[in-house]
């Protein structure tokens, strides 16, 4: 795979001032874990609601007006367009403010920004999704995208883990994927827990046990940096080449469009050139600041 293969990019839809957020209304809130909520929202503007398009892997700049903006991926699939979703962990000022909002509250949205997962490259291949914690959010969009076009892809493995059973996100979808006979679903938690009958162990170790075949496969790995760092070598051991591994990088961002400066890794701007990169690309980065 060449580097450009992952750089599919949909341009910002609206003309004019790219810094003006679109107002959207929160329609539903799901408590995923004690620290994570999924917000379902829709644009107020009827026309935008119809015309807005995005691809799995892209992100937005979400505003709580008066508090500020923060960057999250769109965690719903473009194949399911009743609303848009973002799963948000409560970690900072803006995310805390967002967690305090209720149904009916208004947020601002700018986007979609960034590149998307390379669906064309993935077509016809076996797919291995590896995720940890809130890292399932971008993959949640991609997995539903793939499952809604199931015939286009080969075998599907999903390995998902969290620290405790309570920290598993999208439990309702984990169940659905578990029941789907065309998916090989493995859920794990870091340590033994009461009432937990499933796998126990860290995501990289469990991935090694699941041992997906590398031939004609693509692995998409999202999660905390430490998990990613330990999963790539496991996949390499299983025969995956760096070009067969894809991840998304996380950086502090403000503008989302390659201008404000802070998300660079050398000459790469994660908001503009990413956030999706193959491990092959990452290995070629001059800088280790990722």
């Amino acid at each position: 795979m060449t580097i450009s293969d992952i750089s599919h990019r949909k341009r910002y839809l609206a003309e004019g001032n790219v810094y003006l957020p679109h107002i959207a209304v929160i329609e539903k809130i799901i408590d995923e874990t004690p620290a994570v909520k999924t917000f379902h929202f829709n644009f107020k503007d009827e026309k935008l609601r119809k015309e807005f398009t995005f691809e799995s892997g892209q992100f937005g700049e979400y505003s709580i007006l008066g508090t500020g903006e923060a960057t999250f991926c769109i965690s719903s699939s473009p194949t399911r367009r009743d609303d848009l979703e973002c799963a948000v962990a409560r970690v900072g000022r803006v995310t805390n403010a967002l967690h305090r909002l209720g149904v009916g509250a208004e947020i601002g949205f700018r986007g979609p920004f960034g590149n998307s997962f390379p669906l064309d490259y993935m077509a016809g291949k076996n797919l291995v999704f590896v995720a940890g914690g809130i890292g399932l959010a971008p993959l949640h969009s991609l997995i539903w995208n793939v499952l809604d076009n199931r015939a286009k892809y080969g075998n599907i493995d999903i390995v998902y883990g969290a620290r405790t059973p309570r920290d598993l996100c999208f439990k309702y979808d984990l169940e659905a994927w578990e029941k789907d006979s065309s998916v090989n679903m493995t859920t794990t938690v870091d340590r033994e827990a009461p009432d937990w009958q499933g796998n126990v162990g860290f995501v990289p170790a469990v991935t090694e046990k699941v041992a997906p075949a590398a031939k004609n496969a693509v692995a998409i790995v999202c999660g905390p940096p430490i998990m990613i760092r330990f999963t790539f070598p496991v996949l390499e051991k299983l025969g995956f080449t760096p070009a067969q591994m894809i991840t998304t990088l996380e950086k502090r961002m403000k503008c989302g469009i390659g201008k404000c400066g802070r998300c660079n890794i050398g000459e790469i701007y994660v908001c503009r050139d990413g956030p999706g990169f193959s491990y092959e690309q990452i290995k070629s980065f001059r800088s280790d600041e990722y």
């Binding site: 810094y19 505003s63 007006l65 008066g66 508090t67 500020g68 903006e69 403000k254 503008c255 201008k259 404000c260 400066g261 802070r262």
Partner: peptide, 16 residues
């Protein structure tokens, strides 16, 4: 040097 930050400010009347 062109890097910038983006911040919100609120006034007492609720506008910002």
């Amino acid at each position: 040097c062109y890097c910038f930050d983006i911040n919100d400010e609120m006034l007492r009347d609720g506008s910002g």
